[in-house]
Nucleic acid binder design. Structure first.
Lengths: 247, 247
DNA sequence: CAGTGGTCTAGACCACTCC
DNA sequence: GAGTGGTCTAGACCACTGC
């Protein structure tokens, strides 16, 4: 369903094949987040390659963000629940110096199955299907309203979410995707722009119609490289800061 | 003056030492942009290391963005004048689909030696010195005013810029820094926010006081890792799009 | 064809962590 | 001291480019 059973292209270099294999084994839960993989020497034996090749494959999985290596300790599957990675894709700040990131309190206002509009469907790996899931939520920081998010998901790997009551959703969706749908988000693409609030959106954010907002459109990708989430986030432009490291 | 003559820390791994050496040799102009480095086998011989070590060192310089490798052809010094890299740090767009990026026409309104204010000086590697250079310029796209930029540089490596008449500046500063001051920009950090125009700035942008603008603060770093430029760019928020790939 | 970078091997030794 | 990852070697062979 999510590509884990596909065969690996034998024309690729060995280290690429092993990288894919490791990604699948991690994705399938063979090694749980926080636990260690076997030592590189043992993995090299398992795969029947030299140490150098094995090390190259592991290095790529490190670059993919799936595991971390610690000299003298081992190679560990990254758990997405850790603080550092929780905010990997969450970059609003309340103020420029505000390093004290707290998880915002989240309220889900709407969740339902929808027919994906073409503009949205094109951005998701939903196959031929137009079936999707739509979520509308707000995320509030300590000092009041913060963000308004519209989220679209393809129906197929996410349908189990519909059985969960909105109150039971956590404040962070990505760990939720992983636990309930087996989807790990590893990469995303964001576009930032500027806009004005509609009347309805203004109500949800305790702001006024036409107030300036930052708009972030994000497409998030699974381990297998498929676009599995599209979301549009809006928040008060006057409180918006976004930092990027280039190159 | 810019660290090229520093000795390389012998406690570092060989491939790190070689990486530094390659960076310096490129930075010193031993191999010009667009030309090829010696073959990896020859470099390995020069440095007296095994091929694998040499390859690792070169791989790091590739990651640094200094060279590109082409199978069967060679290892080439990247020329910053090429289209792709010209816009590496320049991410305004006129519209979301606008892939047809043209170099904006640039006008320098002011250039002078200044005493750096503490907030600015802290962000630059200016040593103990408070001496700096300030530039004010606008960059116009085909359909009218675009960006307003304030740029601060430490006096020391950039003082030769003051001898150049503003009309002789090109539309792109980074190649200019390289040619006249021997400073290659390889990395930058940007923070995006939104604000309103002051009366004076509005005049320069043909906009009105209080109009919404995107504000990008950028700190740019040299090959040696020193902060050598701080700039604040403002542009019409309604025309602003900024794309980021995460992880 | 010669010359380049890309893959891969089978070892050796070092540095770090934890018991 | 046992086990882990990090560095490094000295080869072999393959794949691509350009003459």
């Amino acid at each position: 369903m999510n590509g884990a059973t596909e065969t690996i292209d034998a024309r690729l270099p060995r280290y690429e094949q092993i990288r894919e294999s490791l990604r699948m084994r991690i994705s399938n839960g063979e090694w749980k987040p926080g636990t260690a993989l076997p030592a590189e020497t043992e993995l090299a034996e398992q795969y029947g390659v030299a140490l150098g090749t094995m090390r190259k494959a592991i290095a790529m999985v490190v670059e993919d963000g799936l595991v971390e290596r610690a000299h003298g300790k081992g190679t560990f599957v990254r758990s997405e629940m850790q603080h550092a990675s929780m905010f990997r894709f969450f970059r609003f700040r309340e103020n420029p110096q505000g390093e004290a990131l707290t998880v915002p309190h989240t309220v889900i206002h709407d969740m339902r199955e929808v027919t994906l509009e073409p503009e949205i469907g094109e951005r998701l790996h939903a196959g031929r299907s137009r079936r999707g899931i739509f979520l509308l939520r707000t995320r509030r920081f300590a000092d009041g309203p913060g963000l308004l998010e519209r989220i679209w998901l393809p129906f197929q790997p996410f349908k189990s979410l519909l059985k969960i009551r909105p109150e039971q959703f956590g404040d962070l969706l990505y760990p939720f995707y992983r636990e309930h749908c087996g989807i790990a988000i590893t990469r995303a693409s964001e576009t930032i722009s500027f806009g004005g609030l509609t009347k309805e959106d203004a109500l949800l954010l305790d702001m006024a119609q036409g107030d300036p907002v930052a708009v972030i459109e994000r497409t998030a990708f699974s381990l297998e490289g498929e676009a599995v989430e599209f979301r549009i986030t809006q928040g008060d432009a006057r409180k918006f800061y976004y930092n990027v490291e280039i190159r």
